[in-house]
């Protein structure tokens, strides 16, 4: 691989991750990204996402179970794990912590173009005020060209794009209608398995 990969995230995958972070404002949350390589191999398409945890993110057992289950579920649909999403506990914390790095490293082992997405609270705040920005309210980190996770351009011309240009408008609509309350993550599922981490009702 010589050049940087481009990443395209689908609207629903994107919205789910942000709503999950908003539901648990007072703790770190994470999620996993599902997708595939484009035919020529330069682009990564992030088609789906699953919200994982909002408590005790640093523990292995729930993580291992969730990753196996998610992988098994999406394998039939031709999607595999292509990245990791993380939102820090504190609003103004823009550091990729060790737990996030370790989980992303694990994904990187199987998928070298893995994306590490970090929630950008400042950008979300600006979006909530002005509502104009069309670029994702997340920062993209990759490990493709270096030994550690590096920020890969956070602005609109960066390598991370949302597939649908109106995604942020839909997102704002979801936020103002309180849809974030309905988001179910893997923590919720392990506490009550009748709760479905696929969130099938969310986009109905």
């Amino acid at each position: 691989m010589d050049g940087e990969s481009n990443y395209e995230i689908h609207q629903n995958a994107y919205i789910k991750l942000i709503l999950h972070a908003l539901k648990h404002k007072t703790s770190s949350v994470n999620g996993v990204l599902l997708g595939r390589n484009s035919v020529n191999g330069d682009n990564v398409e992030i088609v789906e996402s699953v919200p994982l945890f909002h408590s005790q993110i640093g523990l292995l057992p729930p993580l291992e179970i969730s990753l196996i289950m998610i992988e098994e579920y999406y394998a039939d649909k031709g999607l595999s794990i292509v990245g990791y999403f993380h939102a820090n506990e504190r609003f103004d914390d823009f550091e990729v912590g060790n737990v996030a790095k370790n989980i992303a490293d694990h994904i990187y082992k199987y998928f070298p173009q893995a994306a590490l997405l970090l929630m950008d609270n400042k950008k979300l705040e600006a979006l909530l005020k002005e509502g104009k920005d069309r670029s994702p309210v997340m920062q993209l980190y990759t490990k493709e060209l270096s030994r550690s996770w590096k920020l890969a351009g956070a602005d609109a011309s960066g390598p991370l794009k949302i597939k649908e240009p109106s995604a942020n408008i839909v997102l704002l609509d979801f936020i103002s209608s309180g849809k974030w309350k309905d988001i179910i993550d893997f923590d919720d599922h392990l506490d009550d398995i009748s709760k479905d981490w696929l969130n099938p009702e969310l986009f109905k």
């Binding site: 770190s28 408590s55 005790q56 993110i57 640093g58 523990l59 912590g97 060790n98 737990v99 370790n102």
Partner: peptide, 8 residues
């Protein structure tokens, strides 16, 4: 305990 876990 939870702080310790978050710091691994």
């Amino acid at each position: 305990a939870e702080i310790y876990v978050s710091l691994q």
